[in-house]
Design a protein around this nucleic acid. Structure first.
Lengths: 333, 333
DNA sequence: GCGCTTATTGCAAGCGTGTGCAAATGCTGC
DNA sequence: GCAGCATTTGCACACGCTTGCAATAAGCGC
């Protein structure tokens, strides 16, 4: 262990010629200190470079100020956008984000939550995977709040934030039929996330309402490469689809690239494509993808306000709306 | 404040019928406990859902296990890739990442570092911006380690990790002349980051060695949109460049899209483009961009091993090599 | 059983902070 | 000057953990 020597409140107190409690109070909003000593303390602190020890404060207050963000595939555009928004909002609310990267194994979310408990995080936000019920129970019992984003699976304690995936999928169908498409396809990943499945099911159901069948393919883990493979599969069918809804923009990008460069199809003339997430790349002029925007800012805002409410809060379930942003990958926008 | 009630070592001790110290030792690798009591403790802990309080442990051990990652523009492909690698390596090393989002204002890195101090982070890794020397001094004096990635600016305490930007830039020049290009341009952002400037200067210098002039344009903050603007500026010159080195892949993507869709230029026939970072999009078939790979994994590994060495460490400066990955945006790869 | 060494155990102090409580200080009106 | 009050201040304990130290238990050769 290296030499660690942070300046403590004691030293500040001595320099300012006051008691240690005065120092503590000077850094506690709303505490009973005269302006005079407050200034003395603040100056001494400034000179010494004192910063309140949040480990100790957290220990006393039983409130660490830490919020744990549990997420896999951080490097993915949608995930990182949500992450940015969350950290931003958290900082604005005076909290700080602890980032835990999970892989796709079941246990990894559990260990992440245990880590959150060890650091006595005020709350955890889960963006990927699903923890065992026993662990969530432990969290709630310990007084740790939980936010589940796009994880469905209603439990009673946590805050659930979901999108209107099914309705969105229905809107895609009407867009496709309005564009004159009839051979619909859905390109999904094998991840089987609730929100992805909701899009798939919603799409199939809405198509059926229009008397249309849907060809579904699933492959890989919601990335660009998977999109290419799905294109390979779907575009080589004898009845080639003329409209495909991709569960994700990343899939859509891969799909479009394969469709154009490998199958020489022109979009939207020969093939209409819709994605989901509205990642930055969807707006790039090589894609100009029609897609649904994830209301990341709203999600983050809802999450942060809920978890910084004081008093005992109860879980609730929010369903946010995702706008269809029209670009050029569907005819007749 | 909500009801917070985590289970403490005391309760575990009671249930296991041992003293509180025994519990502590059972969770401390290498401590002196008999296997029998260790098992008793572990079982009781399991039953109660006990997790060691790392706030308290950090307070005692003077070592929080927290490493602070300070970064702006998290949602950017290169940044998020580096972030992923860092969090991964940190977790492997038994540390946990605290993520602080900075904006581009000068003070924001400073406040971020203060936050790091407040949580008594074992170390901070700075991916964006540059802290005031007074703050870095405070960190080092307090025994907090500092890693600066691609920030140049040699100070003595921290670990510096940089790339061979100048050499890389020189390699681009030779690639361009080998492709028969003669009207070189450099597309940069206004950010003025040391590494970006090193690429610019290296490029100009190497071009001069070949008797070539370079047209330089700078705009915006290293994003796709800025790339489009730069294309606008550079491709409307009477002497239109036939080879452009973009300081960043993101710039390059914007540049390529504008060049193709707006100026109807074909790449690499009429225009050669090289980027930097090797973000995922660079490999997408709409771009197939020749670029330099950032050795993110190596960067993260170096950073984490350095900051988890024990004993007092001294700063050092590492310069890593970035490979040129050849794709199709330059003739004659 | 005894003396010896060695592995375990419990006690208690301490890490840096917040906060209730009582003492002290300042202020007002007379 | 003094009583009466509101505001400030310091003391001391608590938070949950680690760890040095002394005490106890265990093991061993005789």
């Amino acid at each position: 262990m290296s030499q660690r020597d942070f300046v403590s409140a004691e030293e500040v107190a001595q320099r300012a010629g006051v008691s240690r409690s005065a120092v503590s109070r000077a850094f506690t909003p709303g505490a009973s200190v005269s302006e005079a000593t407050r200034q003395k303390v603040l100056q001494a602190a400034e000179e010494l470079g004192y910063q309140v020890n949040h480990l100790a404060r957290g220990l006393m207050r039983n409130e660490s100020g830490i919020v744990c963000l549990i997420v896999s595939d951080v490097a993915t555009p949608y995930r990182s956008a949500l992450l940015r928004e969350l950290t931003l909002q958290l900082q604005l609310a005076g909290k700080v984000a602890m980032l835990i990267n999970t892989d796709r194994s079941d246990g990894s979310v559990n260990t992440a939550l245990q880590q959150a408990i060890r650091y006595r995080a005020d709350a955890s936000v889960i963006l990927s995977g699903l923890p065992d019920k026993s662990i969530t129970q432990l969290c709630l019992r310990s007084g740790q709040r939980l936010v589940l984003i796009n994880r469905d699976e209603d439990q009673s304690g946590p805050l659930h934030i979901n999108l209107d995936d099914r309705e969105a999928a229905a809107r895609v169908v009407t867009a496709f039929v309005r564009a004159g498409c009839s051979r619909l396809a859905f390109a999904n990943s094998e991840a089987g996330t609730p929100s992805l499945m909701a899009r798939e099911e919603g799409f199939i159901a809405a198509a059926r309402d229009h008397g249309l069948e849907v060809v579904v393919e699933r492959h890989g883990w919601t990335g660009y490469e998977a999109g290419r493979v799905l294109a390979q599969r779907l575009l080589t069918r004898k009845e080639r689809p003329d409209a495909v809804f991709c569960a994700t923009d990343l899939l859509a990008c891969g799909f479009m690239d394969a469709a154009r460069h490998q199958f020489s199809l022109s979009i939207p003339q020969q093939l209409c494509v819709v994605g989901f997430d509205d990642i930055e790349q969807a707006s790039w002029s090589s894609y100009r993808l029609t897609t649904f925007s994830q209301p990341v800012a709203a999600i983050a805002r809802e999450a942060v306000t809920w978890l910084s409410e004081n008093g005992v809060v109860q879980g609730k379930s929010l369903r946010l709306h995702s706008d269809l942003v029209w670009r050029d990958s569907v005819r007749g926008g």
